[in-house]
Amino acid sequence: MPRSRPARSARHPGVFSLAAAGAIALVLSGCVGAPEPTPTPSTPTDAAEPIFASDEEALAAAEEAYERFLVATAEVTGSGGTDLGPLAGVAIGDANDAQIETAASYVEDGLRSIGRRTFVTYELQSHDEDPSRGAVVAFYVCDDLRGLDVVDINGASVVSPDRVLDVPYLVVAEGRAANDLEISAKDLWERENFCG
């Protein structure tokens, strides 16, 4: 099971602001934070009832969705990229497209995977409830590749001995039902490896 660190808010109302003297004001602000979600008790008939009452609940659901996603993607690459069926219901949007591309690469290179990735949550980035998308949960994870091998058609491993085993990602899970989130984005965090 994935472990999660205590979530902390990653949003700040002002990123970088400078107040210059007089009438000249220099504002260095790239992000103006959205209002902090304030879960409020509501009745079942409340149309605006949030999907998740707290960031912790949202992150837990997102972690479950990502676990399903990793299982599914391992099945896809375990088939050598020929069976895309497992992606249904677990991946949408860019994440789904990326996994289809990955599957195609496995087919093209004549490779298949054995085992699968696991993960640990690094930190919740944000949890928002969007009228059109439902709950949108972005969180940082570290994929653990120790349980994953990639072999060629002869069964020989093609994994580099220098492979990085803990890989940082930003993952986005979203959906309208608390127990049915799907992974919509999974992007390698390029700036640095926070999975030390």
Binding site: T77, E101, D109, V159, V164, D166, P168, L188, W189, E192
Partner: peptide, 23 residues
């Protein structure tokens, strides 16, 4: 994009995010 997923799986991707170090 510096790498695709299969390059990460096989360890042939080289990018800052794939260096074993603390942030």
């Amino acid at each position: 994009p510096p790498c695709d997923e299969i390059e990460i799986d096989t360890g042939t991707c080289q990018t800052a995010g794939l260096v074993n170090q603390a942030a």
